[in-house]
Simulated assay, not measured.
Amino acid sequence: MTFKTFRKSNATIIARTTGVEAAAYQAGLSKVSMTRKHYVEEYKEALDTRAALYAFNPDEPRPSGVGM
Rank of each mutant, 00 (worst) to 15 (best):
A15N: 00
G28E: 13
R50E: 14
A55N: 09
R16W: 07
E21K: 09
G28D: 12
Q26I: 05
F56N: 10
Y54A: 15
A51F: 00
K31G: 08
D48P: 01
T35V: 02
G65K: 07
A24E: 01
L29V: 13
P63I: 11
H38S: 09
A27T: 08
T18E: 11
R50P: 08
Y54H: 15
H38D: 09
L29N: 09
R16N: 10
G65E: 05
Q26L: 04
A24W: 00
S64L: 11
K8S: 12
V20N: 00
G28P: 12
R50W: 10
G28C: 08
L47N: 14
R62C: 10
K31R: 12
T5D: 13
F6H: 14
N57I: 10
G67C: 05
R7G: 07
V40Q: 00
E21G: 05
A55Q: 14
T2Q: 05
V32K: 02
T35Q: 03
E41M: 08
P63E: 11
A46I: 03
L47S: 15
F56L: 12
L29A: 11
E21M: 01
P63Y: 00
S30R: 15
E41Y: 06
T35C: 07
G67R: 05
I14R: 06
K44S: 07
Y43N: 06
E60V: 13
D48N: 15
E21Y: 00
L47K: 15
A52V: 09
S33I: 04
F56H: 10
G28W: 07
Y43G: 03
Q26G: 03
A55E: 15
D59L: 11
M34P: 00
R16K: 08
S30C: 13
P58I: 02
F3N: 11
